[in-house]
């Protein structure tokens, strides 16, 4: 008996809540950037942890969105179809001069619109998701990235369905796909990355001031006409310079070439855009984290 007693006392006591293994956090007015590595670690851990939540939110939004409608998922096609039909009508009736395109005009517009909506939707999605989720993370400690991620998921889902339609359009208008056609996926991803990066960067100011989303709405509507979405790049003049300064021009042109021609000369341009977008995206996520407590404080008024 004395032996067991000795044994027991030599083993360190393990309680269910040994304080040594509990995480400790400290909150003070000190800037989180005083410990940048710590911040990155927190962001990394949170991003990894919130994947389950992001999936559930994505699932929720997807189910909720079309549960109250008869046509359901058909609505995903509607915006692309309207653009195609509008511009085909305008050009076929010579209301707008017809353009010399190397693939049939409706297919041309379809590809352009597909890529442009990937960009513009990814641009507005982060702020919209952040605002929609704010009711939750203003009261509970939840990673806001989960809501943004879920928004991107929803967007990717819509684009995937539209891609299926692209196949149909190619068959219908007899567009012979090149061997590089699968790269259209890369173009879509690139448009989303660029749009998403700008979108995430806008969240801090956009969530405080309503002006931001209105300005973005206007700029995006105008930006479509500075991108070869429904007509080609102008041959000359200062409008051509504007087109060339627009990174989305490269992405849209690349996507059409990849679909029906081949790799073309878009490699360096697209890689550069990808690298810059990725950096901006990362900066946006870090900035959001740095600003978050202040946003919660001011939005929670």
């Amino acid at each position: 008996m004395s032996l067991t007693k000795n044994l027991e006392s030599s083993v360190p006591k393990k309680t269910a809540h040994s304080i040594a293994q509990l995480p400790v956090v400290e909150y003070s007015s000190a800037s989180v950037l005083r410990n940048p590595l710590g911040l990155l670690k927190v962001i990394g851990v949170d991003l990894w942890r919130c994947r389950g939540l992001a999936w559930v939110l994505f699932h929720r939004d997807l189910m909720a969105q079309y549960r109250q409608s008869y046509l359901g998922y058909l609505w995903i096609f509607a915006p692309v179809l309207t653009t195609v039909i509008t511009w085909t009508f305008l050009t076929s009736q010579n209301i707008v001069q017809s353009f010399d395109t190397d693939i049939p005009y409706p297919a041309y517009v379809f590809v352009g619109t597909l890529i442009w909506t990937a960009f513009s939707a990814a641009l507005t999605q982060p702020l919209a998701s952040f605002t929609a989720g704010s009711a939750v993370f203003m009261k509970l400690k939840v990673a806001p990235e989960a809501f943004i991620l879920a928004g991107f998921g929803k967007l990717a889902f819509d684009l995937a369905i539209r891609l299926l339609m692209l196949v149909l359009v190619c068959v219908l208008f007899k567009v012979a796909p090149a061997a590089t056609a699968p790269l259209v996926l890369v173009a879509i991803a690139l448009a989303m990355l660029l749009g998403g990066a700008i979108g995430v960067l806008m969240i801090p100011i956009g969530s405080l001031y309503g002006d931001v989303s209105r300005i973005v709405g206007m700029v995006v509507a105008f930006g479509m006409y500075l991108t070869p979405v429904v007509y080609p790049v102008p041959v000359a003049g200062w409008s051509r310079t504007l087109f060339e300064l627009n990174p989305m021009t490269t992405v849209v042109l690349a996507s059409r070439d990849w679909l029906s021609h081949g790799i073309g000369s878009h490699g360096p341009g697209t890689i550069l855009i990808a690298v810059i977008s990725a950096i901006l995206f990362f900066v946006g996520i870090v900035l959001l984290r740095v600003f978050l407590p202040h946003l919660v404080e001011r939005m929670g008024m």
């Binding site: 995480p23 003070s28 202040h294």
Partner: peptide, 27 residues
């Protein structure tokens, strides 16, 4: 205390997992 907003003065130190029942039925 839940870490949603930062104090302007002083420090708060929290040990362990935090559960908050503030917004019932969030989301």
């Amino acid at each position: 205390i839940t870490g949603l907003i930062k104090p302007d003065q002083g420090r708060i130190r929290i040990t362990g997992m935090v559960g908050a029942m503030i917004a019932l039925g969030a989301g």
